[in-house]
């Protein structure tokens, strides 16, 4: 029982719930499309709950299916969000095309390659690489822009930072996941879980800061593109 509860109410779960509550409190109609984070994080929590249920209650050998679907949704959602930023308007069409291509590749992997019940690490890796590149490019555009912008108060800056750190770390984790599991079996030290927790805390923490910035921005200037 204790292990069951610990499996759900871990650091990652707490970070997700904090992010969800923050999105409910901070995001409203004025924050426009950032409000979709409420739905997105709700879906994340639901998927985590289903995954936990499959793992600890009905004890399926693998709970990858819901996480594979969530993975696709996550990457498409983040890329879509970047298409809404002012800096990325010039390559908006390119990003939309990328969303479409990634979705197709992800679905092909889901249905034909790694399939439903194996964790779609190819999609994960490709998505991480894309997010790192897009986030880095976004930061480059922000620095290159001639007008000054208070970056610490800019929601997309925090989104990009959070995604860069968590995506780069995730790539590493999934690439060396087997070695880390073997290490855990040998030493009982869950290095994988520790790193994964830190990366998720960084990501959700960045999102919460992004929500605060978004709310402040929309309060200062009511008309926002």
């Amino acid at each position: 029982m204790h292990r069951m509860l610990k499996g759900y109410f871990n650091i990652i779960g707490i970070a997700e719930w904090c992010c969800f509550v923050a999105s409910l409190l901070l995001l409203d109609k004025k924050t426009t499309y950032w409000r979709f984070f409420q739905l997105f994080i709700f879906i994340v929590i639901c998927v985590e709950t289903i995954g936990w249920y499959m793992n600890y209650i009905i004890r399926r050998p693998t709970n990858a299916l819901p996480f594979n679907l969530l993975m696709l949704l996550s990457f498409v959602f983040f890329i879509w969000l970047f298409t809404k930023s002012k800096e990325m308007q010039k390559i908006k069409t390119g990003l939309q095309l990328l969303m479409l291509l990634f979705s197709i590749v992800g679905l092909v992997n889901f249905f034909f390659l790694q399939k439903f019940w194996k964790y779609n690490s190819y999609t994960q890796t490709l998505g991480d690489i894309l997010l790192v590149i897009i986030s880095a490019y976004f930061l480059f555009l922000v620095l290159k822009a001639p007008e000054y912008k208070n970056l610490f108060g800019y929601e997309y800056f925090w989104l990009a930072n959070g995604l860069i750190v968590s995506s780069m770390g995730s790539m590493l984790l999934y690439y060396f996941g087997d070695s880390l599991y073997a290490y855990y079996k040998e030493t009982k030290i869950p290095v994988y879980d520790y790193i994964n927790s830190v990366l998720n805390v960084v990501l959700y923490g960045s999102l919460i800061i992004g929500f605060i910035c978004r709310r402040k921005t929309t309060r200062l200037s009511p008309v926002l593109s």
């Binding site: 984790l173 070695s179 880390l180 290095v191 790193i195 830190v198």
Partner: peptide
């Protein structure tokens, strides 16, 4: 062990 150490350092 080396891989794990590498992963931790890289993170």
């Amino acid at each position: 062990y080396q891989i794990v150490t590498g992963v931790v350092i890289a993170t």
